[in-house]
Design a binder for these strands. Structure first.
Lengths: 131, 131
DNA sequence: TCAAAATCAGTAATGATTATCATCTTTGAC
DNA sequence: GTCAAAGATGATAATCATTACTGATTTTGA
């Protein structure tokens, strides 16, 4: 791992990422920090997110409206994505495997990680559509 | 569903999508068809893929190198993605659920579909790296 | 056969992400 | 503290997949 300087902006970006369970996009983080850090640049947000990914401190959950949605919680856990409002929710733990991982290693694949995504309508959107 | 004309290009695009298990991108389909259909336009490929998605005849599996990877097989089934060569593989059936879907409906979510992605190294890339 | 509707090719526009580069910070030795 | 090297940043331009637009072409059904 390359040597990294301590940077207050890097710290702020990481804290913003970890401060929310909204699974934000780069722009969301930028918009959140910009009022307090007026000279923050969107490129810096992207650059630091790329570093966090390399370091295993952030993961991409999915891409919605062609925007990557991120998670600072890198513990494997399933997500629910609302196809109506594009919210991303954490859901319970990921403890099932159904033998697929072992089937994969028997076939010569090295499994590094697993993502489980549920798509559907979230409670809020369901309620809004009852008119 | 809007009325649709029969179009030979639409048919060719759909057949190309279904003819492979490589989970192609729009450009892959375009490049495959272009020699036989010289006046095919990339926009037409995108336009028809968008229609197939609406009709439920195609699904997006993931986004690799910022390219959407598609599947004409809309039966739910897990995929394995090689982080080395970006190949996408079909893997066995999706028959486990570990009670997450029922937990979700209890919490008010309507689940429409589920995607399971495994990331890792495929057999080919593993062999190539043994030097 | 023919006009309306649907589709297309070609091209321009969009928008997220990345690259560039000159400037500013951080670091660690002194 | 001082200072130079390494690292990080802001501002801007470039990239590239995807979408929108428009006038021409094809399909359809009467």
């Amino acid at each position: 791992m390359a040597k990294r300087n301590f940077s207050s902006k890097r710290k702020a970006i990481y804290e913003a990422l970890c401060s929310t369970d909204s699974h934000p996009s780069a722009r969301w983080i930028y918009d959140k920090l910009k009022p307090d850090i007026p000279d923050l640049s969107l490129g810096t947000v992207y650059r630091n997110i790329a570093l966090f990914k390399e370091e295993g401190k952030a993961q991409v959950i999915c891409s919605l409206n062609s925007e990557e949605r991120l998670d600072g919680n890198v513990t494997p856990h399933p997500h629910f994505i609302c196809t109506c409002c594009n919210s991303v929710f954490d859901i319970g733990n990921d403890n099932s495997d159904s033998g697929i991982a072992s089937e994969l290693s028997e076939r010569g694949f090295s499994v590094e990680s697993r993502y489980i995504l549920y798509y559907g309508i979230c409670p809020d959107c369901k309620n809004k559509n009852i008119h």
